[in-house]
């Protein structure tokens, strides 16, 4: 069997964030994690080629990039495709999900990727793509690669695929009929009795979690309202006084801008480790738009700009942690009678 692998510029050994704008390209044979896949597949599968694309290029041109990658993959007429694993890298996860979805849909061959459950690519693609559950970082590379190989081989050989927890992929929400030894009523009673005794039981129908917040009514008149700026782009006073981590942040900062008209590159910089910092360090207003917000305040488009901005680094930061930061920030904003918030993200 023949396989094609999809990787980002980092795992594809092209470069780091400075190469994130790279358009899709093909290399013959295996690169980076491909060598591990090759070892695991042994003689069963030949890795014919590796398609590599920059994370920013993909995330900023999802449809176009998917199409290009798809046609590069098709040139090799593979029997199966592997993408990633992307671990907790958000842009990479979106790319791997989009590639696998398109391959399965348009080429009708199995495609498997791997991600950490909090990767935004999971929520976007888990219903259409087999996503093996991985650790957050490359520490989990071998384990992820083993699961991906096993699963994609099963799919390619049209062998029956087991339940998510048996095979190690994230639930796709698919249901398959089978004959059970006991009928539904007696299974339900058994489960209820276990629950009443405080024992563990496994539901046969997990309820979907709708973690959505209904949109709030609009702000009546922005010209009377206090607006606050928040960023996940890591803009901090030079030297990063709060020591916000460049990835997987556990902190956020609150910074006084009451006396400032703009963020000068002399005194502000980015602490974010997930994008090329050149442009943000040249002009921090490109991420935290204080200069334009001050103009709006002066022109009366907004009532007032809140005297502080809040910043964290959104790079690999857990959803729970980001939620906690936002909850604390919101409390602070409510005390100051802030009526509207703009969040900027890279």
């Amino acid at each position: 069997m023949r396989a094609v692998l999809y990787l980002n510029q980092f795992f594809g050994q092209i470069g780091a964030e400075d190469k994130a704008d790279l358009e899709p390209l093909v290399k013959n044979g295996s690169v980076g994690p491909g060598n591990l896949f090759r070892e695991l597949f042994g003689a069963q599968v030949e890795i014919a080629a590796t398609v590599i694309c920059g994370d920013n290029y993909f995330a900023e041109h999802i449809d176009e990039a998917t199409e290009k990658v798809l046609s590069m993959i098709a040139d090799y007429a593979p029997d199966l495709v592997l993408a990633g694993p992307a671990f907790n890298a958000g842009r990479y996860g979106m790319a791997c999900g989009a590639v696998c979805e398109a391959v399965a849909k348009h080429q009708g061959i199995p495609a498997v990727t791997g991600m950490f459950p909090e990767n935004p690519g999971v929520e976007s693609f888990r219903k259409t793509v087999y996503i093996v559950k991985t650790k957050a970082t490359t520490v989990g590379m071998r384990e992820a690669a083993e699961k991906m190989c096993r699963l994609v081989l099963k799919l390619a050989r049209k062998e029956p695929v087991g339940l998510p927890e048996e095979e190690g992929y994230l639930p796709r929400g698919l249901r398959r009929n089978y004959f059970a030894a006991e009928n539904g009523a007696s299974r339900a009673i058994t489960m209820l009795l276990r629950k009443m005794k405080g024992e563990t039981f496994t539901t046969e129908y997990p309820m979907p979690v709708f973690d959505r917040v209904a949109p709030l009514p609009p702000v009546e008149r922005m010209s009377k309202a206090t607006l606050a700026l928040v960023t996940s782009g890591g803009i901090v006073p030079k030297g990063n006084p709060d020591r916000i981590e460049s990835s997987s942040a556990t902190r956020y900062g609150k910074y006084d801008i009451s006396a400032l008209q703009r963020l000068s590159p002399e005194f502000y910089e980015t602490a974010h480790g997930g994008y090329d910092p050149t442009y943000a360090n040249e002009d921090p207003n490109r991420v935290m738009p204080l200069d334009a917000a001050r103009d709006m305040e002066r022109e009366g488009k907004i009532g007032r700009l809140h005297p502080y901005y809040y910043a964290t680094v959104g790079n690999g930061t857990s959803v729970a942690r980001a939620g906690q930061f936002a909850g604390e920030i919101a409390k602070d904003l409510i005390i100051s009678d802030v009526r509207a918030v703009i969040i900027t993200s890279t």
Binding site: A59, I62, G90, A322, A326, G327, A340, I342, I343
Partner: peptide
Amino acid sequence: MAKEIEKAGIPTVHICTVVPI
């Protein structure tokens, strides 16, 4: 973060590059 701030009652707009995320 946008979701949590809205949950707390302040209308929030998210300016971001990767809209699907």
